[in-house]
Design a protein around this nucleic acid. Structure first.
Length: 671
DNA sequence: TTAGTGACACTTTTT
DNA sequence: GTGTCACTAA
């Protein structure tokens, strides 16, 4: 990327007022334009605090903040850069009482949602072969992303399955509300509700900013779309940036149509197209262009390369996924050790979160530094979820999912029977579980021993909550771990000292996160903010030292997580039918495959200099090796498949070899 | 009634 | 590797 902005970029940066649509291909400097535009607005006199920048992930928000800080210099006030969800949380914390919600609400992540869905299905007696909890969540999610509420869902339902799901949806929302909790979709839906029902709140929130900039606009859902409109309709200074070819969140309600509709909503909008790719070598860009032409529904767009030549992308085949990992890591090792390539220049991209396992162990064996981005890691750890549940109960005892998780953890004599008895009474008397624990008089048929245990539990929670507003989050965490005897419990359950060690490390990591949080925010209801940040993954979890280590590590991540990033050396692994495209997208319709193709396109366009595809001929699934087929995308991007929308290019250029023909040579070269 | 053990199924992508 | 279910011992 040159230091000078080209004319299109300059136009996007300097258009100061009115709606602006930036249609930008991959690697054309999209984020750079947003960053410079914000800096330019500030330079021209807009106070930084009056600018709202919305990104898709917290990672992207952090990077953007960092770059703006670099451009502006340290002493200046910074603009508000945040994700949609984080921004909505802040709005709701200020106004949610208008919607008859307590302002102390907890945010439930997928695991919590699953737990509620399970209970709902049990309550309405739905067998697992009719609807499983994750099915219910998927259906509710698709309704929510189309702004369909439970009542409407019940009207719209046609099939039996939909009827059951609609009933489940209603119960699910009731459960959330009674626990004072919201899920991720609710953050957007409730904000949308708030703005449409309470114009005062809308005006107040809209008047906070004079300029709004949205990155990755192709991934906005309909509730996000309406929220943006509600915030921007007054000042009309709305700049959106996106690329329809990189729309990969359709399954979450993202609609490419919003970016198409922009000109209709804002007829005077200025449109700027960025079509010069500064990132990838010509060879890589050719592969990308060839691939994406197989998608029929797309904006007419041509990406020009500004770089000539480059290394031709390779396709490697291996016997199984272990061999794949071995060989790829061996290849990386040679680049790092023999050619002095910094590990941070290298990324391994994959479709699903189970794929990196084999690569991780190979990388460890080779003593190559790596970081696994996203995935399950931290929050899926039992220890983290245990402690988090305690913290949530301390923050709000109405949080039933958390309360039920910790009520007998570590074991304290409150078993299944007692819990289900409490739940029965709670449901029939219409009171919360915590209320029953506080007033056990309403409980009947519970053994005196269990009552005693309940009483001890109540005192424990009460004493942990004492003075909670005055304490720092670290103190709360340490105190909780201490008082519940978590270390002792760990030593009791696990015999292997190494396992205890690694599990305890997660506890320490959570404590560190709390310490970092305390440093940054010294005021207010700290615990609640900490929990919000953790759930929305808005935390800067690593200390500075670890961050520096990370900076020189190989990156492992999913294709979804890779959006917006770039690396000199990219490996796209597991290029097989059923993985990319994923088999769940093959079932229904063509459009799902198009989204998988865009996902592949996103991966390809991350690469700057060198791109390697790999696949395994057999892959283990549930322990059994099964033969695989090369991904159709491999044929498409090598020009060996029919049906590209502009098929002329496919035969004109000198092709890289098909997966099969190239195999022997490649494997040799890797040894 | 509770605590501990083993079989079992589950893994698309994420805020 | 993890949560859930069914079974058994105390």
């Amino acid at each position: 990327m040159p230091d000078q902005l080209n004319s299109a970029q300059l136009e996007a940066v300097q258009t100061a007022a009115g709606p602006l649509l930036v249609l930008a291909g991959a690697g054309t400097g999209k984020t750079r334009v947003v960053t410079y535009r914000i800096a330019e607005l500030i330079r021209r006199g807009t106070p930084a605090g009056r600018i709202l920048g919305v990104t898709f992930t917290n990672k992207a928000a952090g990077e953007m903040r960092q770059r703006i800080r670099e451009i502006l210099g340290k002493q200046k006030e910074l603009p508000e850069i945040s994700t949609f969800h984080s921004h909505c949380v802040r709005i709701l914390r200020r106004h949610i009482q208008h919607l008859n919600y307590p302002s102390r609400f907890a945010i439930y992540d997928r695991r919590d949602q699953l737990s509620i869905a399970r209970n709902v299905l049990r309550e309405i007696r739905v067998a697992a072969n009719v609807l499983r909890p994750d099915d219910l969540l998927a259906i509710i999610g698709s309704w929510k992303s189309n702004s369909i509420r439970a009542a409407e869902a019940e009207r719209l339902a046609e099939t039996d399955r939909q009827h059951v799901a609609a009933v489940g949806y209603r119960r699910y929302q009731q459960a959330l509300r009674s626990m004072g909790a919201v899920d991720f979709d609710d953050l957007l839906l409730l904000t949308d509700d708030l703005f449409s029902q309470h114009s005062g709140s809308r005006r107040e929130e809209a008047s906070r900013f004079d300029q709004i900039l949205i990155d990755e606009y192709q991934d906005t859902s309909s509730s996000q779309y309406r929220i943006i409109k509600a915030l921007a309709v007054g000042h009309r200074n709305l700049c959106v940036v996106g690329d329809d070819d990189q729309s990969i969140y359709g399954w979450r309600g993202a609609e490419v149509e919003h970016i198409l509709r922009f000109k209709k909503d804002w007829p005077d909008a200025k449109v700027v197209r960025l079509q010069e790719n500064y990132r990838s070598s010509m060879e890589i860009l050719q592969v990308a262009n060839r691939l994406i032409e197989f998608n029929k529904k797309r904006f007419d767009k041509q990406l020009h390369s500004t770089r000539i030549g480059g290394e031709r992308p390779q396709v490697l085949q291996f016997r199984d996924e272990t061999k794949e990992a071995e060989a790829i890591v061996a290849d990386i090792y040679r680049w790092v050790e023999n050619r002095g390539i910094p590990p941070s220049d290298i990324a391994i991209l994959f479709r699903t979160n189970e794929q990196p396992r084999a690569f991780e162990s190979e990388l460890r064996r080779a003593h190559l530094p790596y970081t696994l981005v996203g995935g399950s890691s931290f929050f899926d750890r039992k220890e983290v979820r245990d402690l988090l549940a305690y913290l949530r109960v301390l923050s709000s005892p109405r949080d039933e999912v958390s309360l039920l998780r910790i009520i007998n953890l570590p074991p304290r004599g409150i078993g299944m029977k007692t819990v289900s008895r409490i739940l029965d009474v709670a449901v029939s008397n219409g009171v919360s579980v915590w209320e029953l624990i506080e007033r056990p008089g309403e409980l009947s048929e519970i053994s005196p021993v269990a009552l005693q245990s309940l009483d001890a539990f109540r005192s424990l929670i009460k004493s942990l909550r004492r003075n909670i507003e005055k304490r720092t989050v670290v103190e709360i965490v340490r105190n909780t771990v201490e008082r519940i005897g978590y270390r002792e419990e760990m030593e009791r359950i696990y015999s292997d000292p190494q396992e205890i060690q690694s599990r305890w490390a997660a506890v320490e990591e959570l404590t560190n996160a709390a310490a970092i949080f305390d440093e940054r925010f010294k005021t207010g209801t700290a615990l609640e903010g900490f929990l919000d940040d953790l759930t929305l993954d808005a935390q800067e979890r690593e200390s500075d030292k670890e961050k520096k280590l990370d900076q020189d590590a190989i990156t492992l991540m999913t294709l979804h997580a890779a959006k917006g990033l770039e690396f000199p050396h990219v490996y796209m692994v597991g290029m097989e039918e059923g993985i990319l495209p994923h088999h769940r997208s093959l079932k229904d319709n063509e459009e799902d495959v198009d989204e998988e193709r865009r996902l592949c396109y996103v991966g390809v366009t991350r690469a700057q200099d060198r791109l390697t595809f790999s696949m395994a001929q057999t892959r283990r699934k549930w322990g059994k090796p099964r033969p695989t087929q090369p991904s159709r995308f491999l044929y498409e991007l090598t020009g060996q498949a029919e049906g590209a929308h502009t098929p002329d290019k496919a035969t004109s250029t000198n092709q890289m070899a098909a997966p099969d023909t190239r195999r022997r040579a490649k494997r040799k070269s890797l040894r």
